[in-house]
Each structure stands twice: as structure tokens, then as C-alpha cells.
Simulated scan of single mutants.
Amino acid sequence: MAIKVFISKGSATTTKQREFIDGVLHTLDVSGLSPRIMFENEWSHEQPLTAIKKVIKECSGAVIIAFERTIIKEGFELKKDGKEDLANTTLPTPWNQIEAAMAYSYGLPLLVIAENGLKSEGLIEQGYDWNVYWTELSVEAAKSESFKGFLNSWKKSVVEFHSRPSKELSDPGKLTVAQLLRVMNIPQLWSLFAAIVSLLIAVATFAYKTGAGKWPWG
């Protein structure tokens, strides 16, 4: 079964945006991954944040496709040391930031793809646990060797995340004996066996001494 990855994207409003999204999704498909998109192949009667959280928890990676959604012709941003001119600034959908933060909070590897010219801020900027892949929006860009290389590097982290023990198994208090034995490696099993044998010997010795020289099984 293909590994599920969550897709965060705004609604495409131009042919260029639609073609780029289709190109990215196709590249993910041929890489053996299953893109999950809210209200396209994932449906829920619940409010968006609740539904998104549940879908993200079922995925092993997240792809953030950020492209122009808002254009600021004139304006500025107030900062502690002054103002930043925002004239002709372009911003993606705020859902990119929300969904990226949710995916990151669950430890999912992020593949952040951003259209050249977007304002670099929040999770769509350098300096976090991932590099942003800045690109022009075109079918050729989605099929380029550089993008495939970037994606394959991220996919390795996705596969590693997918192969980890489940959250339930990572909580020792919820493990059954069978689950515990499955997640232990050979040296750990030998250590456990040695500890059990040592404990049995100690109990038997104590019973022998307190039983007037008689072994407990005699």
C-alpha cells in the first residue's frame, strides 16, 4: 500500500497553478506515494481543523504547495524598528501556514514548495528543519531533475517516519508482552533473558536459605 502524504494547497485560480499542482501530484504518484487532499479525496462532516488533524495523523509526510493567493498593491508592516514596505507583495493561502504547523507538530517530514516571488515568512522561509524549494510554476519545473532530487531526499525521511513503531508502541505503559518482544533487538532480548535468569537464581537462593536448606521446588 502506498504511503499517505498530506497535501496543503490553496484553490488554483489560474491554468499555470492547476498545471503545476497536477505535475507535483503526478510526481508523487509515480514515486509510490498517496497524496491526501482535503475535500478532494478526503471527506469529513467535521469542522476543518478537526478533520485536517485526523487526516494528518494518518499520513507520514506533508507537502506544502504555496503559490500566489493574495496581492498587496500598497501597504506596510509595522515592526519594532520601523516599517516594512509591502507594495506589490504576494502571499499564499494562510492554510499553508496552519497545515504546515499542524504537520510539523506531529513530527511529519515537510516538503515545502514555494512560488518565486512570495513573501518569505512563517514556515515558508529558510532557517527551520527543512529547506524551501523555490520555483516557477510550470509543468517542466514539477518534472525537473532538481525537483525530483529534492523530493527523493524528502521521501527517505517519509519512509523512515512510516517505518517507525506506532505512537501506541512508543508508550511502554501500553505495550503487551508480544509487542514488547517485537520491538526489542537481539542484544536487548539477551539482556532481558539474563536479567530474568538472575532474578530466578536470586529468588531460589533466598528460598533455599530460608527453607532450612531445601530448594523451593524440592
Rank of each mutant, 00 (worst) to 15 (best):
S11R: 12
A204G: 12
S157C: 12
L181G: 03
S146Y: 14
M1C: 01
T27C: 05
F193P: 06
I71A: 15
S170I: 00
I56S: 08
G117S: 05
S166G: 11
I64Y: 10
T27H: 07
I64W: 07
L108T: 04
R69V: 14
E160D: 15
K214E: 08
A100M: 09
I52P: 13
F150E: 02
P92D: 08
H45W: 11
S60Q: 02
V30I: 14
E115H: 09
E140Y: 10
I56K: 05
T50F: 12
T93M: 06
K143R: 11
T50R: 14
N152G: 09
L91A: 05
I3L: 14
F150S: 00
K119Q: 11
T135E: 03
E99T: 10
Y208V: 07
A87F: 14
E46Q: 01
I3D: 11
E58T: 09
H45L: 01
A194E: 11
L189N: 01
K209N: 11
A207K: 07
S11D: 13
E46F: 13
A87Y: 05
N131H: 08
L169V: 14
K167I: 13
F20V: 01
A141P: 01
W43R: 06
K57F: 14
F39R: 15
P165F: 03
V197H: 04
Q126A: 06
E125C: 14
W43P: 03
A66V: 04
K16M: 04
V112T: 10
E168W: 03
A87S: 15
E77P: 07
V197G: 12
K83I: 06
S138G: 09
A51E: 02
K4L: 06
S34L: 15
K79L: 02
I72E: 07
A142M: 10
T70W: 13
W190A: 15
D129T: 03
G61V: 10
L49V: 12
V159D: 05
R69I: 03
V55I: 09
A103V: 06
T70E: 01
Q47G: 10
D81R: 08
